[in-house]
Amino acid sequence: MERKIRVLVAKPGLDGHDRGARVVAAALRDAGMEVIYTGLHQTPEMIVQTALQVDVDVVGLSIHSGAHMTLFPAVKKLLDENGMGDVLLHGGGIIPEEDITELQKMGIGHLFGPGTSSKELVDYIREEVERKRASAKKG
């Protein structure tokens, strides 16, 4: 049997608004995933370090502070540099449409906005991880 999907929920940057991150963490746990929550005020280095240590399939960043254009690319770059380019990096928060487009061009996954249901998020993660696992087997 394949191992449970392992997700790192992370709060990068200086912002402490963690309602979204904690609700998401609880919802993913209830959907049967293994969830690790970093806690607050994490630098990209700290997040990637944790991701490496616990060997995650997915990293989800929660950002409400407007710092997404700096923090997402920084985490992406460090994941790639550490041989974790296949980890699904995605996230949520208050992120304008055109920034989402730009971030997705850099290889960042879906970015969920306010009002997203847990189901949408869970389905997305399952599909993406299955796809990645399948292509890894083939490869």
Binding site: G13, L14, D15, S65, G66, A67, T70
Partner: peptide
């Protein structure tokens, strides 16, 4: 903004990307 709230000057490394944002 978040750097001010968390006690960092705008030119400190932890402020990067967050200056004047929220």
């Amino acid at each position: 903004d978040m750097p001010t709230i968390m006690g960092y000057d705008s030119d400190q490394s932890r402020a990067r990307g967050e200056v004047g944002r929220c």
